[in-house]
Design a protein around this nucleic acid. Structure first.
Lengths: 186, 186
DNA sequence: TGCTATTTTGGGCATCTGCCCAAGAACAGG
DNA sequence: CCTGTTCTTGGGCAGATGCCCAAAATAGCA
């Protein structure tokens, strides 16, 4: 009835392997056998722990996004001024060059969500909650238009991730002085 | 030696079918047979007109991006004030809900470029040229930091396209008043 | 109209795909 | 140690995949 330690380990290995592979070969190119090989298990194991390959990918992607957003939250709370908060938000973005698995899996998941209603629901929930937090933080620091600005900031972060491989001038230090203006009143 | 009218027509039908299908099923899920069926030709035709399926997708994606950017340019030139320019830029974005083939194929292409050096080169060239144009336009209107702002704007546009299916509050009318601040001096 | 280059046809090859399943191994609790 | 559950093993099925090719059909030009 309850899973054993070995079982949990295999599940975990499959999920982390999935994140790597989505980054390397793309969402739709992750196959049962490739995934199993990378995780160090036999192909049959995949469908024992997950009802389908897409369910596995869903869970992996949602996990990554949840972790990333969970990392941003405390950094936001720690920030005293709006500028510090912006710096914190985009400072965490420094870990993601646009070529790393986490960046890629998130963007891939956004696209996959276009064709997978369940994934869409899950991502929408996470993103909405994050937007709400950023908006509340903006409002708490006296910003006008907190909701719209939070929406734009969220979209801009992912847009930057998406563009980084194509544009070397999108480093955090290049981007921060521009986006600072979004915090100004008006 | 030189292609005939019928030949050109088949090529064209394949390219436009590719754009639709990339939007519907995703870059990696476009198969020779599916593509041929949608284009109204037999599967064998695909590899007569293109050396490989990926070459076909490359050409289709580059064509779409080139067309979109070509549509933005004159609208930018027509704009008298920076605010008009911004409105024009994001007004064209109104045609793209984030669910339409053009939006999706562009974002899909960005991701595919991560694993396809040739596609990467082509997209990089187009995006760089566009950024240069926007930067020149910003500079002509007395903006400081034209390059960085152009980079951020380009990334933001695609980020908004990516986020729209997950966030209904990213309509042009919601986004414009926020991004107006990027044009302010400071 | 004939002749040549271009294009379509329809089938085929080897390989990969997601998912399934019976049998056995490794485990936890008594 | 024995027992019932959890998990792995290794193989298999039907179908889809990219790419290829000889032959037939068509198009454009003399």
């Amino acid at each position: 009835m309850s899973p054993t330690a070995r079982g949990r380990q295999a599940r975990e290995k499959l999920l982390t392997a999935a994140v790597q592979l989505v980054g390397e070969v793309g969402w739709n190119a992750v196959s049962t056998r490739l995934l199993a090989e990378r995780a160090g298990v036999l192909p049959g194991v995949v469908h024992y722990h997950f009802p389908s390959l897409s369910a596995l990918l869903r869970e992996a992607a949602v996990g990554v996004l949840r972790d990333v957003l969970a990392g941003v939250r405390p950094a936001l709370d720690r920030a005293a001024t709006p500028e510090d908060g912006l710096a914190a938000l985009f400072g965490l973005l420094d870990d993601h060059t646009g070529h790393d698995p986490a960046s890629l899996v998130v963007v891939e998941a956004y696209l996959a969500a276009t064709r997978d209603p369940e994934l869409h629901r899950a991502l929408r929930e996470l993103v909405t909650e994050f937007r709400r937090d950023v908006a509340a933080w903006l409002a708490a620091h006296g910003h006008d238009r907190p909701e719209q600005t939070a929406s734009v900031l969220a979209a801009t972060v992912d847009g930057i991730l998406l563009h980084r491989p194509l544009n070397p001038q999108l480093g955090t230090q290049d981007v921060l002085p521009v986006l600072r203006k979004l915090l100004a009143p008006g």
